[in-house]
Simulated assay, not measured.
Amino acid sequence: MSEPILIEIKEGIALITLNRPDRLNALNFELIDRLMAVLDAIETDASVRAMILTGAGERAFSAGADIHEFSGSVRQGANIAIRDFVRRGQAMTARLEAFRKPVIAAVNGLAFGGGCEITEAVHLAVASERARFAKPEINLGMPPTFGGTQRLPRLAGRKRALELLLTGDPFLPQQALEIGLVNRVVPHGELLSAARELANRIIPHSPLAVGGIITAVTRGLNMAIAEGLQVESEQFAALVPSHDLGEGINAWIEHRPPLYRGC
């Protein structure tokens, strides 16, 4: 059996590929568990400064949850379905959202259901002009379960999100760009190079500052602004004794490039 996740680390960027192309990279339990293990490894690997997440093959980023597999959990009742399916998927998207290194989705094809929810959760996204998005869970008689009822309205606004959630209609990458689901749309052949270019604009900066910004934004979105400002203050305070903040200030004063250590 092939590995459900492929990993390639080059020049500070980890390229992570969902590798079930014969199943349109559907998210089965094994793939989700393996992705979580990969995130654990990358988090502590100082050589990795950013991550790009894409799908194997030419057809799909991910067509969503593996329906054949999770239907077995549903047949065993709500407690089993929530334990095996819902909590697993929500833990995956929450992990991606809170990851302190930037995660960029390179959406190369279908991003339906759970694939769309991954796109919602990651920090940045670049879509191929061939990408297609949808929230089709309504067609199965269920709501999204990996965070789609919560993250999409925060990105797109309540009414635009509800139209997509309640109809299940597919939508094009340009609409995904307009509603804030992706950052840009590029020709298919330029997808990975565009994702790498975006990553390379981030990784020269202090990894401590990058992680602090991600944490402040991710946590603050779910708080009142006063609480969010407190999180922002805490992230800054954690940087005050670091080498990186002092080096960044000194480099600016001395008109030279900073030499960050991530400490």
Rank of each mutant, 00 (worst) to 15 (best):
P102H: 01
G55W: 01
R196M: 15
E254Q: 13
R95P: 02
L140A: 09
H68Y: 14
G109K: 01
S193Q: 13
F112M: 10
R151V: 13
Q150L: 13
V217C: 03
N108L: 07
A226I: 10
R49A: 11
L162T: 13
R160M: 08
R88E: 07
L198H: 08
A56F: 09
P170S: 06
V240G: 10
S242P: 06
R20P: 06
D244I: 03
A194H: 10
R160T: 14
G189R: 13
G64H: 02
E120G: 01
P153T: 13
V48I: 14
I214R: 00
L245D: 05
E254G: 09
S233R: 13
C263M: 14
T93E: 07
R87P: 03
V107M: 02
T218K: 11
F236E: 08
L35I: 04
N79S: 10
E190R: 07
L239R: 08
A127R: 00
E254I: 08
K159D: 11
A121E: 02
T149A: 15
A131F: 03
P187T: 12
A209K: 05
P241T: 07
L221W: 15
S128N: 10
N25W: 02
F61E: 00
G57A: 15
A251F: 03
D244A: 02
S2V: 15
R219I: 11
I7D: 04
N108T: 11
G55V: 04
G212F: 07
F99V: 00
